[in-house]
Amino acid sequence: MNSTVGLILYMGFFFGLMYFLIIRPQKKKTKQLNDLRGSVKAGDQVVTIGGLVGNVINVKEDDFTIEVGAARTKLTFKKWAISTIEKSSSAAVEVETIEIEE
């Protein structure tokens, strides 16, 4: 009886440890990534999971269109393909304007 209770407490301790070290941080990271993908808007510069960098020109419910390269090629991707949002074009314009005024 005593060894059974000890085994159950031992297993419970390791489950709790696994939860706080692995499961909880992964859920937090997934939530942040979903919030990031939901906040993409036209004018943002994004990097896809394939490494393509482009400016967002159109956002639909589950898709977005980016413009890449000197030829301004338009590509359509699913929102889950966004890896990071680098910067907003409007923010870049504001920074450039501030630097010019100084």
Rank of each mutant, 00 (worst) to 15 (best):
28 K>T: 08
24 R>A: 06
7 L>H: 10
36 L>H: 05
78 K>I: 08
25 P>N: 00
19 Y>T: 10
36 L>Y: 03
68 V>A: 09
45 Q>N: 06
6 G>T: 11
8 I>C: 09
87 K>L: 05
44 D>L: 07
90 S>H: 09
21 L>A: 14
85 I>G: 06
43 G>A: 04
72 R>M: 13
75 L>H: 08
73 T>C: 01
25 P>T: 02
40 V>I: 15
75 L>N: 09
23 I>C: 06
37 R>T: 06
83 S>Y: 09
34 N>S: 08
87 K>V: 10
8 I>D: 03
98 I>H: 05
1 M>F: 11
59 V>L: 02
86 E>V: 15
80 W>H: 09
9 L>P: 02
61 E>N: 13
33 L>M: 13
99 E>V: 05
87 K>Q: 09
91 A>F: 03
88 S>V: 03
90 S>A: 15
95 V>T: 14
32 Q>V: 07
37 R>E: 01
73 T>Q: 11
20 F>Y: 12
8 I>R: 04
55 N>R: 14
82 I>M: 02
100 I>P: 00
40 V>K: 04
29 K>W: 05
76 T>S: 10
74 K>G: 07
41 K>G: 03
80 W>I: 08
72 R>Q: 15
21 L>K: 11
66 I>H: 01
77 F>M: 04
20 F>S: 04
10 Y>L: 14
58 N>F: 04
46 V>A: 00
82 I>G: 01
97 T>Q: 12
50 G>R: 02
11 M>H: 05
95 V>K: 12
97 T>F: 05
93 V>T: 09
54 G>P: 08
29 K>S: 08
101 E>L: 08
28 K>Q: 14
61 E>D: 15
53 V>D: 04
68 V>L: 08
70 A>V: 11
20 F>H: 11
45 Q>F: 13
15 F>C: 08
86 E>M: 08
55 N>I: 10
2 N>P: 03
33 L>E: 09
38 G>T: 01
90 S>N: 12
73 T>W: 02
21 L>S: 13
75 L>V: 14
41 K>M: 12
44 D>E: 00
21 L>E: 02
39 S>R: 02
71 A>E: 09
72 R>H: 15
43 G>W: 01
78 K>R: 09
58 N>H: 11
10 Y>V: 09
80 W>Y: 13
102 E>T: 01
96 E>I: 01
66 I>K: 02
45 Q>K: 07
83 S>H: 11
38 G>K: 04
71 A>M: 04
76 T>P: 05
72 R>D: 12
46 V>N: 03
16 G>S: 11
8 I>G: 02
59 V>D: 06
9 L>D: 08
73 T>N: 10
30 T>Y: 12
50 G>L: 01
64 F>S: 00
8 I>W: 05
89 S>M: 12
46 V>Q: 00
49 I>G: 15
81 A>S: 15
62 D>H: 00
33 L>C: 03
29 K>E: 15
27 K>N: 11
70 A>T: 13
66 I>S: 02
49 I>R: 15
4 T>Y: 11
28 K>R: 09
69 G>S: 05
85 I>K: 02
27 K>Q: 14
92 A>S: 09
27 K>S: 05
62 D>E: 03
77 F>L: 13
96 E>N: 13
76 T>I: 12
94 E>K: 10
102 E>I: 00
81 A>L: 11
38 G>A: 15
16 G>L: 14
59 V>N: 05
46 V>W: 07
67 E>F: 06
20 F>R: 06
59 V>H: 03
